[in-house]
């Protein structure tokens, strides 16, 4: 399991904070993720959000991740009250430099272990225990919003459709050390 740091939740971005000239792309909104397997007695000490198949062919950007906050935008404060779960960062390709076909990613067989195309979509994850526990007090459905904020003056920093993700997974983990007692 790969865990991206959630320490950027400590950032105290106040509403109205400037984006320092960085541009905002279209907000990504996931379908509801249903955590119906969570029972009242279910205990977990850590909850992770994993992002599979993130497109990296476009601009570099920060993806601000909010849970169950459909009004979240680039000015929303980065705190638990607003459902902020953390940010991930993408070092983007910045568009295609090659000729026709250069960026085409050919599908691979499942167990083909050879290395893949350098535009193979990325994987990111973050620990989001507190925001998920907070939400589960009222609902078992989570909608994830991602606010993409591009790097300044990058080749495609004015792009709008930036966030493409194949799959998002939320997993909650029991405290194994406790179970072993």
């Amino acid at each position: 399991m790969n865990k991206m740091s959630n320490s950027n939740r400590k950032k105290t971005n106040k509403k109205g904070d400037s984006l320092s000239g960085r541009k905002v792309g279209n907000i990504f909104s996931s379908p509801p993720i249903k955590l119906n397997w969570i029972k009242e007695e279910t205990e977990f000490y850590r909850a992770d959000i994993e992002f599979f198949g993130i497109d990296i062919s476009g601009p570099s950007y920060e993806g601000r991740v909010f849970l169950n906050n459909p009004k979240a935008d680039e000015n929303t404060g980065l705190n638990l009250e607003n459902g902020y779960a953390g940010s991930y960062y993408i070092f983007g390709h910045g568009g295609c430099y090659g000729d026709v076909g250069h960026r085409d990613i050919k599908p691979r067989r499942t167990f083909d272990s050879r290395t893949e195309h350098d535009l193979t979509p990325a994987y990111k994850s973050m620990i989001a225990t507190e925001p998920i526990k907070k939400i589960l007090k009222t609902t078992k459905e989570i909608v994830i919003s991602i606010i993409p904020i591009t790097a300044r003056s990058a080749r495609m920093s004015n792009a709008k459709d930036i966030v493409y993700i194949d799959k998002i997974r939320i997993s909650c983990y029991e405290n194994y050390s406790k179970l072993n007692k």
Partner: peptide, 24 residues
């Protein structure tokens, strides 16, 4: 994975040529 995300963040922060794999 965590170190790479930290690395990505610095590329985003630098902006300009550093923010594109093509030119960084």
């Amino acid at each position: 994975d965590k170190l790479e995300d930290y690395h990505d963040r610095i590329h985003v922060w630098c902006g300009g040529s550093m923010a594109d794999v093509i030119t960084a």
